[in-house]
Structure formats: structure tokens, C-alpha cells
Amino acid sequence: MAKAEKKWLPRWFYQLASPRWCYQICGKLLPGFSLVTLVLLLGGTLWALLFAPADYQQGNSFRIIYLHVPSAILAQSCYMLMAVAGAIGLIWKMKVADMVAKSCAPIGASLAVLALLTGAIWGKPTWGSWWVWDARLTSMLILFFLYLGVMALNSAIESESTAAQSTAVLALVGLVNIPIIKYSVEWWNTLHQPATFKLTEKPAMPAEMWMPLLVMVIGFYTFFAVALMLRLRNEILRRERRSGWVKELLLVK
């Protein structure tokens, strides 16, 4: 049984459980990821702002899509990662997974804010008002509320392991609910305002338009990896402050 389990999960999965190993591997990966992020985001932004053609209907305000869509996608992926990491922490009692889940929440919340703000700004030239109860914007707002709940619960519980476990349960409950909320909000939206002009739905986007978008999405993913690793390293140091290797690391400096 034990052997089968060992084959089932790769070796790095167990190594991830060691905070020290995780701290070191993050430190090694950070420069490369930072460089890739810088290149992708800078290149993507220049491409989006300078070379992508303007939309025939929305004109140049269409260029906001290159920030709005990646941040919205990332805010959702981040919640999923947070819930999955929380579940791993609950099941295998893995400290590093708890730390990943905790580090995810603020990044995801900030990306949700970015998606909301860019959506609202985009709404002004498109719909003529700063806020419209559009289905996507509304579900993003609710996702933001879910992040706030997770963060509030985490900060309210003093014991670190209890906080991690409780937030994991809440994140999992939220994960089950997200599709239901999304569906119900979309359905509510069609009930109340039939056939509004949707922000991100284009019949067929030409390649010159979606190529920079793809670059930006990948860039946001690597940016998320960098931000997560930065926070994770802090969290590992903070939680492992009593262990020998942290003392050694800090004394050498």
C-alpha cells in the first residue's frame, strides 16, 4: 500500500512538504520567473497599446481588455489554487500547502479589484456609466467578497494551524459555490436586462487582437507565480522562525 502510494505521487510532492526545500527552490526560481514576467508584461503591454488594431465598435477603449481579462482569469485561478492548496493542507497536513493558501488570498483579492476597476472604467465609454450590473462584473464582485471572507476568517483566528484549516474549509465551500453563484448571477442578469452589450464577448477576434491578449494572460500567470513565491518565502520564514535552518540562514547574513 505504501509502495503504491509512493509511486502514485512524484518525489517533488513530498519534497514540497519541507518548508526548507520549498524556500530554497522558490529562491532559485524567482530570478528566472521575474525576468520572464518582465519581458512578457512589458512586451504584451507595448503590443496591446501600440500595435493591436482598435476595435471597430469600441475604438481604443477596447485596449482595456488586455488588463481586464487576464486579471479576471487570474483572480479565478488564484481562488482555485487557494482551495486546492487548502484541501492538500487539510488532507496531508502539509504546512507548505497551508502557507500557499494563505499567500494566495491577498494576491487574488488585489487581482479581483483590478478586474473590477478596469471593468468599471471600461464600462464608462461602452455603456455610459461607471457601473452596470453585468453578470461578469457582478460575479467578480462576489468573488472579491469571498476573498474578503477568507482573509477576515484567517486574521480572526489566532492559532495558525486552526486558521489555516478553517480557511481551507471555507475556501472549499466557496469553490463548490462559485459555479452555482456564477450560473445564478448569469441567469438573474438575463432575467433583468435582456441582451446588453457584453464586455468581453466578441464574435470572432482576429489574431492581431488575441495574440497580445494571450501574451498578457501568460505574463499575468508568471507574475502571479512571482508574487506568490515572494509571499510564500516570507510566510515560510515567519512560521519556521524557531527552526535551526532559519536561524542559520539569518546568522550568516
Partner: peptide, 27 residues
């Protein structure tokens, strides 16, 4: 930006702020 400069630049400024904040604050 064809009259939409305020919106586009405001969005990208906010994007820059959020990205930088996520890097600078943890550092």
C-alpha cells in the same frame, strides 16, 4: 487614444499600481 485616453491610461495606471504593490509590499 481616440478620445478614450482617460479610460485607457487610468486602467493601465491602476494595473501598474496593483502589479507593483504585489511585488513591493512582500519584498
Amino acid at each position: 487614444m481616440g478620445g478614450h485616453g482617460l479610460y485607457v491610461w487610468l486602467s493601465y495606471a491602476l494595473g501598474l499600481i496593483v502589479i507593483l504593490a504585489n511585488l513591493v509590499l512582500p519584498l
